[in-house]
Nucleic acid binder design. Sequence first.
DNA 1: TTGAAAGCGATACCAA
DNA 2: TTGGTATCGCTTTCAA
Lengths: 336, 336
Amino acid sequence: MKPTIKDVAKHANVSIATVSRILNHTSVGYSTKTENLVRQAVEELGYRPNAVARGLINNKTQTIGVLFPDVSGMLTSELLYGLEEVAHRCGHSVIFCNTSSSGEKTLDYLQLLSEKRVEGVIFGSSLLTETYYNAITAMNIPAVLVSTKSKKHPLPYVKVDDKDAAYTATAYLIKKGHRRIAMLSGNPDDSVAGKPRIDGYREALLDSGLKGEDSLVFAADGFSYEDGRSLFTQFYETATDVTAVFAASDEMAVGALSTAYQMNVRIPDQLSIIGYDNLKISEMAIPPLTTVEQPLRDMGKKAAELLFEGMETGTPGKSIIMPHRIIERQSVKQLV
Amino acid sequence: MKPTIKDVAKHANVSIATVSRILNHTSVGYSTKTENLVRQAVEELGYRPNAVARGLINNKTQTIGVLFPDVSGMLTSELLYGLEEVAHRCGHSVIFCNTSSSGEKTLDYLQLLSEKRVEGVIFGSSLLTETYYNAITAMNIPAVLVSTKSKKHPLPYVKVDDKDAAYTATAYLIKKGHRRIAMLSGNPDDSVAGKPRIDGYREALLDSGLKGEDSLVFAADGFSYEDGRSLFTQFYETATDVTAVFAASDEMAVGALSTAYQMNVRIPDQLSIIGYDNLKISEMAIPPLTTVEQPLRDMGKKAAELLFEGMETGTPGKSIIMPHRIIERQSVKQLV
DNA sequence: TTGAAAGCGATACCAA
DNA sequence: TTGGTATCGCTTTCAA
């Protein structure tokens, strides 16, 4: 088996206490001679301190847990990228949990993370239910929400203001001369990414003296490519005189783009489309998709920073609203 | 702080040994009465066993480490999805490490994982250098490679046969009537995903009595969208009479698609394109991209299964070549 | 059926 | 400058 601190001590003819002291640069009490002796022993034995034992004694595992409903989504991966980066910088590992949007799996994981004594939890992209919240508070460690939020529960979150961002997208379309604008939306009952975006869209319309007709918002259950496709078909069969559409996600927008292509409607000449997220696919789309950016990696970073702050100070820290902005590409046409 | 087994014992008026026995369903030696007592105490105190302490005593952390050069790539996310799924099923957590293709970071991580006493390691998508290999063997735990392999080092791997898959892609193009076929390739010095794919392409050509001209393979450093774009431009300025191109990755193929679109070359009417990977974007592309599929999620699963097998048996296990197949969509035209 | 006690590998306090 | 030892929370003999 792996050598332990005892083996090193024996090998160097010193006590384990001395070895520990030297390896942790703790106290100033040891001679250069013994230090060399010990370091050499460490080298020869290929000794690596056991983080598990260390974790047991000082109650610190240097690990955080991260829960996402869908690892394979491009949105999640970007968030994860940012998270991991700062976690690593802060000397922490991340245990990564794919909840598959399953309540049971989420609870399961929370319990597991609790047993593993992670020092903090980041919960991403999905609704924080009462049960989850209870499980998290029972863990008695800091937690932060990313790309989601909770009205009822006082956990700090990092996200853009969805309503505001949707407002910006819609206002952009209006500024470009569009008057009849449809929306491809997620689930209106989704109070974090669904309803707020619809509200923002509607408010922008109203603020410009346009009317927000219900018949112009097409809602799906989720925000997927497929949702975008079917919504676009619905839209195209129903709506008339629309010159622009705001899709609540880039995946949806790309779905719309594809379907439009197949239906021979030319983007942006016959119809303008704006997306939401600024995923890599929006850049790769044909035509390149104009969209409102969420700074995903930064959000991941900020969330981790917020968590570490909470771990150090012992107090939750303040939620962060991230800025959003329009990325102009080629899917929106300026109307005369 | 969190309640310990001691608290539970005290609360239930039994010894910690009894609590341990009951919680681990170990031995048959305890009465239903005490069991109830203990369970109730656990409930009341909200006790969760400390996996760290447990890990210390039985030298098992129930976690594995996973290293990837790029979390945010869609390829990686799919692999990760599969990995995580079986890890979870096997009662293990995954510590997720983004190496950013940096040698130093990789070594760093390996060391960290070693200290954290993970029980196995999965190394993905990048070249296994001598140093990495040494670091891994020094950890003295099973390791498996996914979406990469090593000629020099005897670690089991899970991947498709790149040469074979490239052969299939090229042969498909030939079957469709194409005779002059270009290739957009990764780095020819890359012995795992670079050269083999070029070899497969060339061999298919030769086997059909066509000549594999060097001037028809355009190589980049990587496999990115941007690489695809610039390669396509190069290709288009140089090559003549080509009717089809084989791109060594879907991202490259999509880059080619975009560039082609901007140059007004119509796919597949004027030029056919086939990709490699079958990422989600290939389905979302315009036109939908014909490509050769790597069963990414399955590869992730298999890799994890292979690792767990190794952890149980103590022997490495056999490498797995995953099947590949053509996914026919609309980017390749049948020539008369 | 139950309890006492010896570790697992490290840290940190108290003496020497 | 060093060593002995209690301790972290748990599992697992060995006795009772």
